[in-house]
Design a protein around this nucleic acid. Sequence first.
DNA 1: AGGCGTTATATTTGACATAATATAACGGCT
DNA 2: AGCCGTTATATTATGTCAAATATAACGCCT
Lengths: 123, 123
Amino acid sequence: MKTKKVSAGRPVLRPRFRITRGTKIAFGPGKADLLEGVAKTGSIGAAAAHMGMSYMRAWSLIQEMNQSFQQPVVASARGGHRHGGAELTPAGRRILALYRRMERHSLKIIRADWRILQKLLRN
Amino acid sequence: MKTKKVSAGRPVLRPRFRITRGTKIAFGPGKADLLEGVAKTGSIGAAAAHMGMSYMRAWSLIQEMNQSFQQPVVASARGGHRHGGAELTPAGRRILALYRRMERHSLKIIRADWRILQKLLRN
DNA sequence: AGGCGTTATATTTGACATAATATAACGGCT
DNA sequence: AGCCGTTATATTATGTCAAATATAACGCCT
């Protein structure tokens, strides 16, 4: 049974911190999610699949991150006893943690304003 | 001379609050800028040109906003003694002010973390 | 009535980001 | 050597969003 979607759904606020260097996006919410996926799954491909993204896209995002920071955020290997895999570097873990903390703090500080704004939205 | 030399790749952090209703984006940084332009210029077309955007795009963004909120954010007129024009409604002004305040507060609260993160970036 | 500058709307074109597809490389296994 | 599952990389196709283009409407003016 297909649910007929008449209403637009409950309004959602998402804080996004986008860090750019020139035209390139060094870090942002999508990349943070991807790092989290790699940390959880130990594999670029699995992380990509888990968030409905092609391996190629995930890999290129990781490339961008690795090139944007002084130290790579993901270390990956091909072949070997485990048939390859990937994991976060210490720098990657630190960057991800910092980003999540920024998100949390930000959400907290804007909560009151967001509640006011929410009331002005159509439902 | 106070302005320091800016390299092309200098990292930039932009806090973005995207308010979504289902798939539609009710409000966000671009729309905030557009509202500001309308307030300043008194015209949709002039605001669009001022920020390098086509009139059509600006108009459709305003449509989305007007439909997303309980009250329209922009009031526009065709013809007349002033050959048409547009201005923010009280609701529009209030929403824009709220959004800017959220941006300011957020930037302030994450500033310390951002400085740390900045040092991890390649320069 | 016709001009003016703006808003309003539809349709077509084009550019660009992403997906899809294909292929290779890796390195320790058995 | 050949298999395995993963990463690595290039090339092609496609779909979506925005730009471009076109036209109409508006209402007060002279």
